[in-house]
C-alpha cells in the first residue's frame, strides 16, 4: 500500500508538473509579449512573435520525448550494429557477417516469414467473414463483442490460455488439454503439440490469430457498413446472389481498409516476441527475430552489437509499410 501511495504522489506530481509546464510557459509568453492591450504597433509585433513561439511550447515535450525514445534510438541502433558486444569497440561488418552466417537467423527469418504470411491473412480472412455474417443477425453485436474480447488479453495471458489447450499427459492418464482430449475422443494418439517441428509454429500463430481477428473484424465491419446500400441493391436487381455480391460488389469497395488491417497486423507480427518466449522459449525450432533480438540483448551479459543488427532487420522489414503510411497521410492532408 505504501508503494501505491508513493506512486499516487509521484503520479500527481508528474501530471501537475506537465500541467504546470503548459500553464507556466503560456503565462510567461503572454507576460513577455502582451497582446491584450497596448499600442497597435507593439501589439502587432508581440502577436507575431508570440504566434511563432507558441506552437513550440505546445509541441516541446512531445518532440523531446519522441526524439529521445524513438528517433535517436533508431540512429544509435544503426551505429551500434557496427560495434562489439559492449558497444564500445568498432567491429565493422562483423555483426552482419555473423548474422548472415548463423543458422539461428535463418530459422527465425523463415519462421518470421511464415508468421507474416499466415497471421495477417488468417486474421483478416476470419475478420472479414465474421464481420459480414454478424451484420446480418440480430445477436451480431454480442457475437462481435465475444470475438473481439481476446484483444484485451495480454500475449502472456493468451499464452497460458493456449498452453493449457495444448497440454499433454503421458500414458493412459486423462488428457486435460482440450486439443488432446479431442484427438483421443476421435480415436487418435495424443501429441506434444509444441515440440513438433515446423507445425509448432502454426500452433503459436493460432494464438495471435485468435487475438487479432477481433481487431480485423471491428474495422472491416465499419467499412462494410460504409458501403452504400444502393450498390448492393443494384446488384440484387441485377440478379447477383449472396456470394457474388460479397466478392464482386462488397470486397472490392473495401480494398483500402483491408490493406490497412493487413499492414497493421503485419507490423504487430514483426514485433511479437512474448508468445514465443512464454510458449516454447524459442525451443524446437520456433525462434523469431524479435525474440532472438531479445535473447542477444540479455544472454550472457548481452551483446548489444548483435542485438542491434537483428533489430535493424526488423526495421528494414517495416520500412516499406512506413513509407506507404506516410504517403497516404500526406495525400490525406492535401485533400483537406
Amino acid at each position: 500500500m505504501g508503494q501505491l501511495a508513493s506512486a499516487l504522489v509521484t503520479m500527481i506530481l508528474g501530471v501537475m508538473g506537465c500541467a504546470a509546464y503548459f500553464y507556466g510557459s503560456n503565462f510567461l509568453l503572454d507576460k513577455i509579449f502582451p497582446t491584450k492591450s497596448g499600442a497597435a504597433a507593439v501589439v502587432a509585433r508581440n502577436l507575431r512573435v508570440a504566434n511563432n513561439i507558441r506552437p513550440w511550447l505546445f509541441l516541446g515535450p512531445a518532440v523531446l520525448l519522441l526524439t529521445f525514445y524513438l528517433f535517436y534510438p533508431v540512429i544509435d541502433s544503426i551505429r551500434l550494429s557496427f560495434y562489439g558486444r559492449s558497444g564500445e569497440e568498432f567491429v565493422g561488418l562483423a555483426n552482419y557477417k555473423w548474422l548472415f552466417g548463423s543458422d539461428e537467423f535463418y530459422e527465425s527469418f523463415r519462421n518470421n516469414m511464415l508468421w507474416l504470411i499466415v497471421v495477417p491473412t488468417a486474421a483478416t480472412f476470419f475478420g472479414l467473414i465474421i464481420a459480414t455474417m454478424t451484420d446480418r443477425i440480430w445477436w451480431g453485436n454480442i457475437a462481435k463483442s465475444l470475438i473481439f474480447m481476446p484483444m484485451a488479453i495480454s500475449f502472456v495471458g493468451a499464452s497460458v490460455i493456449w498452453k493449457f489447450i495444448y497440454d499433454f499427459r503421458t500414458g493412459g492418464e486423462d488428457q486435460i488439454g482440450l486439443l488432446n482430449a479431442l484427438v483421443v475422443f476421435f480415436g487418435g494418439e495424443p501429441q506434444t503439440w509444441l515440440t513438433i517441428p515446423i507445425w509448432n509454429n502454426f500452433f503459436l500463430m493460432v494464438i495471435l490469430i485468435w487475438i487479432q481477428t477481433g481487431f480485423a473484424m471491428v474495422i472491416l465491419s465499419a467499412a462494410l457498413r460504409g458501403i452504400p446500400d444502393e450498390t448492393i441493391e443494384a446488384a440484387v436487381l441485377d440478379g447477383a446472389n449472396g456470394f457474388q455480391i460479397f466478392y464482386k460488389i462488397m470486397v472490392p469497395q473495401i480494398w483500402g481498409t483491408i490493406a490497412v488491417v493487413w499492414t497493421t497486423i503485419t507490423i504487430l507480427v514483426l514485433k511479437v516476441f512474448d508468445i514465443v518466449l512464454a510458449m516454447t522459449n524459442a525451443q524446437w525450432g520456433t525462434q523469431v527475430l524479435a525474440n532472438q533480438m531479445f535473447s542477444w540483448m540479455f544472454n550472457g551479459g548481452g551483446d548489444f552489437g548483435r542485438g542491434a543488427v537483428i533489430a535493424l532487420v526488423i526495421m528494414v522489414l517495416v520500412i516499406p509499410i512506413m513509407v506507404w503510411n506516410i504517403r497516404r497521410a500526406n495525400a490525406e492532408m492535401e485533400g483537406r
Binding site: 558497444g87 540483448m297 526495421m315 517495416v318 512506413m322 497521410a329
Partner: peptide, 26 residues
Amino acid sequence: GRALLVAAVVGLLVVPLQMSLIPLLK
C-alpha cells in the same frame, strides 16, 4: 515544418520497439 512533423509522427507509428531497446538501456 508542420507537415514534416505530421509525417514524422506517422513514420514513428510503426518503428519497432526493438530498435529503441538497446540505445535506451545504455
